[in-house]
Write a protein that binds this DNA or RNA. Structure first.
Lengths: 234, 234
DNA sequence: TATCGGAACTGACTTTCATCATCTTTTAAA
DNA sequence: TTTAAAAGATGATGAAAGTCAGTTCCGATA
């Protein structure tokens, strides 16, 4: 759904994100060219296999980037928050999307056409450098998670996933206990396991007073202990 | 061990690799600046946790890039062949190495210092574009393997690993059956499983006439069937 | 060529986790 | 508020794969 777009200049999300590399005139140009959409929870932003024609920049809401496994099971490969861009991998590799992006919340997402994106890359060194750093960091994260999938037991990966959620979506001010509403299905897709196993291990964590749950929302009570669980052997 | 370096200009490996983006004068400059080393099978080229000071370009031999899992088990995240560069992720992300590089064979590897690499990136658009494409493709591969680790059974991942070895190290002329010498330990590290499990499944493949083995070398007899094994559910 | 060490291989056993079935709670719509 | 559907939770069971222990094979070196 399209609607009146927010101005990039006023977008606080851009601080500390790739768009922060743009100067004022570039931001104005992007603002003028982009389209902006709202997505309801669960709606698809782009679809695995589809052809990318631009870049998505998240203005508000949470987004998952996920691949379909061979037997229909979903694996979340990345989580995105306001200020993050998604869809850049396919654009740079010049391939179709290798994953889908889905809104976890109601979200506002801006679309920057490919031509303008390439323009920024070729004219703004900070921007292209930032993009390379983004790619490199994402590659490092993906390789790290690949090792975890291979060798870490589910319990440790679940602790890791909870901390990843906190790290990604913790509000800036937040010194409080972190709370997030996430379906057990989605959580299992981060961990790379079955929903039932996730639920069982969450119950263990509840017994151990590491978290509490209410409906689908989870509150982290003891992040330090979660941290020590996922670094058992380190 | 350092020795008389091969000239980049005459290096046939550079065709189809990132270095192929360089023009003659750039190649001469690289050739003049670089150092060149030989590594015996098993020797470490760079070490996980170490600080990168440049880029490695493989002139001959096979190289594995691997991470150490939490309980001391190794996961091979990438395989490199002549012409490939390694160590670029850490350099671009400006972090320490997140994986080690080890020679699988006796290998000749050239070292390009960071300053010259950054020079190439900033002055040669084709080079920086090629690097971005390299990063994007590697990210796609890593995410794909992450999903496989999560949901594919070991048998399918082993078939996948054998085909990956073939795709990577198949000689250009090779229409013959592909043969490679690889320890069961290393093969298990690609698959992300235990050595014994790998051996057992290789025996199954032998029974099914998909491969033959002699000592540590493995010959692929029926790549099509291996392919159908790793795409069971697709 | 003998032998020593490492790698390939095999078997027995155990653990982890996926699956299926069922029940309960929550959520949202009528 | 009632009720239907979706999501959370729990139990029982079996398959997949890890671990440990042991044997055989091969290749390097004396």
């Amino acid at each position: 759904m399209k609607f009146t777009p927010p101005e990039c200049i006023n977008c606080t999300s851009r601080i500390g994100s790739l768009m922060g590399c743009c100067n004022q005139s570039e931001l104005e140009s992007v603002s003028a060219t982009k389209s902006c959409f709202t997505f309801r929870k669960g709606q698809i932003i782009f679809h695995e296999g589809g052809k990318p024609s631009g870049l998505y920049c998240i203005n508000s809401g949470k987004v998952k980037v996920a691949k379909m496994g061979s037997d229909g099971k979903e694996q979340i490969v990345r989580l995105a928050k306001p200020g993050d861009i998604i869809g850049y991998r396919a654009l740079m590799a010049d391939t179709n999307y290798s994953a889908s992006a889905v809104a976890l919340d109601d979200a506002v997402v801006c679309f920057v056409p490919k031509s303008q994106f390439l323009e920024l890359i070729s004219h703004n060194v900070a921007f292209s450098g930032g993009l390379m750093k983004l790619l490199s960091t994402a590659l490092g994260d993906a390789e790290e998670r690949m090792v975890q999938m291979a060798y870490k037991p589910v319990r440790e990966r679940l602790a890791e996933a909870l901390l990843l959620l906190r790290k990604t979506y913790q509000p800036a001010d937040g010194t409080d206990n972190f709370t997030i509403s996430i379906s057990r299905e989605d959580l299992a897709s981060i961990v790379g396991t079955a929903k039932e196993t996730t639920i069982r291990l969450l119950s263990e964590f509840k017994d151990e007073k590491l978290i509490t749950t209410k409906g689908s929302s989870i509150t982290i009570l003891d992040a330090d202990k979660l941290y020590s669980i996922c670094h058992l052997y380190d």
